[in-house]
């Protein structure tokens, strides 16, 4: 445990649009991030707390209703049992949860060389450093220093705990073809997918920020009024309030 802190590299600090009191998500970055997730991450990482309908909700990627329906119906959802007692598959509906790449944790672990690819629904909140950590790990692949022992199927990552990661670098220039024409550089994709994962972990972030600003303004006005009311009342007493 003592060596833990020594191994931790300082994470890359990104100036996220969702940072700060009035922070908001970049809508098109969220949509691109979703594309990166489906085309790159989703083959191993589940997101079983999200539903397709979430993609159209306020404060998220805000795909149109038709886009959400199209995205959902492209998924094959296991349903049933039907009247014969059989399970069957059907096209997804917006109310369905994201379909997982593996039927269960054991299958996911077995298919990935003994390392379970974590569910990504709240991943950003489940890691120290949050969004910066996810971004840093995605950008942290490099050749191991001389003499650093790596087994087969294990990769070197600057920011991963112990510098060993069982996921090969998932991103490479142009691995996705962005629908909006943005150049799919590694940085861009890492940024977009991190933005998407941040929203996924905290889907009401924008609503929270907006409400928070209103609540604070309200409270400050009320507090000021109460303060002067208090001063007036206490002016009858010889003691300072």
């Amino acid at each position: 445990m003592s060596s833990l802190s020594a191994e931790e590299k300082k994470l890359i600090e990104v100036d996220w649009s969702f940072k700060g009191v009035a922070g908001k998500f970049d809508r098109s970055s969220l949509q691109r991030g979703y594309q990166v997730y489906t085309e790159v991450c989703a083959s191993c990482h589940s997101m079983n707390l999200l539903s397709y309908r979430n993609l159209g909700e306020n404060g998220g990627p805000e795909f149109s209703i038709d886009q959400v329906k199209a995205i959902a119906s492209a998924a094959e959802v296991m349903d049933g049992p039907d009247s014969q007692g059989e399970m069957f598959t059907r096209p997804g509906r917006p109310s369905d949860k994201f379909v997982s790449p593996y039927p269960n944790v054991e299958a996911a672990t077995a298919a990935n060389g003994g390392a379970y690819p974590p569910d990504m629904s709240v991943l950003v909140k489940a890691r120290k450093g949050g969004s910066n950590y996810i971004y840093s790990v995605l950008m942290g692949y490099e050749d191991p220093p001389v003499g650093f022992q790596l087994d087969d199927g294990v990769y070197y990552n600057k920011y991963m705990h112990g510098n060993k990661i069982k996921m090969s670098n998932p991103l490479s220039e142009g691995i996705v073809d962005y629908a909006d024409g943005t150049n799919a550089s590694e940085e861009q994709m890492a940024k977009d997918v991190t933005t998407f994962l941040t929203w996924a972990a905290e889907p009401h972030l924008e609503q929270r920020h907006k409400m928070g600003v209103k609540v604070l303004i309200f409270l400050i006005i009320l507090t000021t009024l109460v303060y002067f009311s208090m001063r007036r009342l206490w002016s009858r007493i010889d003691t300072e309030v």
Binding site: F218, I221, L222, L225, V226, F228, S229
Partner: peptide, 8 residues
């Protein structure tokens, strides 16, 4: 002052 405080 008091009315405003109460209302708010």
């Amino acid at each position: 002052l008091f009315t405003a405080s109460y209302t708010l």
